[in-house]
Design a protein around this nucleic acid. Structure first.
Lengths: 138, 138
DNA sequence: AATTTACTTTATAATTAGTCTAAAGTAGAA
DNA sequence: TTCTACTTTAGACTAATTATAAAGTAAATT
């Protein structure tokens, strides 16, 4: 993907293509595989791999904007910090509660048997399944 | 349940029955229905309904101790604060992302079709299913 | 092209959940 | 009763995140 593609992508969804947003797009979407990261991970990555010092507040802003536009997903864990995922397809996660490692579960590998009716007046937005794992104590 | 029962319960699981712990037991387990709460909720509740000013640190300590003993469950949400649940049976939750309201799902109402094998060397501790809901926009 | 406007970024301050600490208190054993 | 280990406490501290207000910039307007 070229820069111009990211510029179009941003513009098409109503986000101004600023230098920072384009760079973050590169970092997130010019990759072979999807990946998980925290806000801090991304801020550091921008500095190290992209020589781009972006204010933390901007990284938060951008990620929340990208999340709203569906470019990334936020992952719900019982953790103090929040994780983002560039894999936006419907899928769930293993979470290693000791190492804080997140691992994708292929969506075909897990499915709900019967989805209960939501409380009256409410409708389902999405479903998060987290399978907490731990290293076998040998 | 009488105070003495809580004292026994605590002692049996190796926790000293201190005044604070007994009071918290009363607040959590002398209820008709199970319920969800945050650490802050509980601290305020102790003060208001039980006239018992308990240091926040103690509330944290106590809840973590109770969690380790299986008296309460901690619920993983994509939220910044953590929720506890006096319903310790295996069950999952609706979560209203707008109001932060948590609603139990009867465990019989939802089930995984096939649980994927955990990554090599790891084993499953538990599974959290959160169904995010929102009020219908009418 | 210059001007204007609204949206963005930035550094920093503020907020918030949660943990740590060290001193004072207390349950239970001796 | 005394001692010891476990608890509680207030308050300092940490880390994640949000708010703020000024400076910068994209894009619309002239």
């Amino acid at each position: 993907m070229k820069n111009q593609d990211f510029i179009n992508k941003l513009r098409n969804s109503g986000l101004r293509p600023t230098k920072q947003r384009i760079k973050i797009c590169e970092a997130l979407f010019n990759t072979e595989k999807t990946f998980h990261f925290t806000v801090n991970d991304l801020a550091k990555m921008m500095q190290k791999n992209f020589n781009e010092k972006i204010s933390l507040a901007t990284v938060y802003n951008t990620l929340h904007a990208f999340k709203k536009k569906g470019y990334v997903k936020e992952i719900s864990l019982g953790n103090d910090k929040s994780y983002f995922d560039t894999n936006i397809s419907s899928h769930h996660h293993f979470f290693d509660t000791k190492t804080n490692e997140l691992i994708d579960i292929d969506s075909s590998k897990v499915e709900l048997k019967n989805i209960p009716n939501p409380p009256k007046g409410k409708s389902i937005k999405d479903i998060d399944i987290v399978i907490n794992v731990e290293n076998d104590s040998q």
